[in-house]
């Protein structure tokens, strides 16, 4: 019934899950009037007002026809179909998480769940020493000290180049290599574009990055080095000290993650897994709610992926949406 969900539900659990999903359906049908279309369905439009055909539509014998399965959205004259399960469609300024798959001359290639690999140029990221300058041949040779293959990297979408390739940038301390944590891949339609994609969950000591491309990073909290305030010389000294031994003492000292934080990371990651398997929107509020729910039920981390917890989460979600519609 649900994608990627092989649960052995017993009879009561099955009934509870079904009733929770039915509740969700009835809640959404009030707000959304049958705007779903399948491939090759005709989209009813008012031709007198003029129509602009957007993504996911095409014209066929004078009719507007959907080319993907999804939900019809109308903005003034524009009619487009918002596809649900599809690969990520980048927009300029999106915060994304990706994995380095190749170190090429002056650039890294990143897998970001797009139809092509994204390119992160050496020149479009801040070097560890933080000075604005031309990138020299030495910098190019030292690229592997910044990111290696298979590193997980956080960056921002810069835009499409003339040749159609997608370029990224990482011009702030908050971007860059991510380590000591877990990377989760979910469907991009479950992540909403918001003001804030970096979240520091203080109570767990964990950083959560909800990449717009459906890559979600859950890792130990790293104190952001805000270089805006710090004096230039002071900072470069400090940075030199950091990068001086490259993989030296500093790294070793930090490489230990306490058990408690590891457990928190796993708990949050499992919450995301449960939510995405059920197809619910993944936001910080919901994730923290699910994590709290699991700890209040005294569940072990591995029990979060058991059948019972899925049912509980579905019921909780139905409850949450019902109360939020009441408030409105």
């Amino acid at each position: 019934m649900i994608r990627g969900l092989q649960l052995s539900l017993n009879k009561t659990q099955k009934l509870r899950l079904e009733s929770a999903l039915e509740q969700l359906e009835s809640l959404s049908s009030k707000t959304n009037t049958n705007a779903s279309v399948a491939v090759a369905d005709t989209i009813p439009v008012n031709y007198e007002d003029g129509v602009l055909k957007g993504h996911g539509t095409s014209e066929m014998e004078g009719q507007v026809v959907a080319t993907v399965c999804g939900v019809v959205e109308r903005v003034n004259k524009l009619v487009y179909v918002r596809a649900l399960r599809a690969r990520y469609k980048p927009e300029v300024g999106d915060i994304i998480v990706g994995r380095v798959i190749e170190v090429a001359p002056k650039r890294w290639r990143l897998e970001i769940n797009f139809s092509q690999d994204a390119v992160l140029m050496l020149s479009s990221m801040n070097l560890p020493d933080g000075i604005q300058r031309r990138r020299t041949a030495t910098d190019e040779l030292n690229m592997r000290t910044i990111f290696e293959e298979n590193d997980v990297v956080c960056a921002e979408v810069r835009g499409f180049q003339h040749d159609g390739s997608l370029h990224l940038q990482a011009r702030s301390q908050k971007y860059g290599k991510l380590d000591r944590g877990q990377l989760l891949r979910i469907s991009p339609y479950l992540v909403k574009r918001r003001k804030q994609h970096f979240h520091h969950l203080d109570q767990y000591g964990v950083d959560l990055i909800l990449g717009c491309n459906g890559f979600i990073w859950v890792g130990e909290h790293v104190e952001a080095k805000d270089d805006m305030v710090v004096d230039q010389t002071n900072k470069s000294e400090q940075q030199n000290a950091n990068s001086g031994g490259s993989v030296g003492s500093d790294d070793q000292e930090q490489s230990h993650t306490s058990l408690e934080i590891r457990q928190n990371i796993c708990r949050i990651a499992n919450a995301v897994r449960v939510l995405s398997a059920l197809g619910f929107m993944v936001t910080v509020e919901v994730i923290t709610e699910i994590v709290d729910l699991s700890s209040s039920l005294n569940l072990d981390i591995h029990e979060m992926l058991g059948a019972e917890f899925y049912v509980v989460v579905a019921e909780r979600e139905a409850e949450r949406r019902r109360s939020s519609t009441k408030k409105r």
Binding site: E25, S28, S29, A40, C69, V71, L84, G279, R321
Partner: peptide
């Protein structure tokens, strides 16, 4: 096939919520 796809799309949409 059409019915199936439409049903699937509706399911995904309402589960996702707003």
């Amino acid at each position: 096939i059409r019915e199936l796809l439409l049903e699937n799309t509706k399911q995904l949409e309402f589960r996702r919520g707003v």
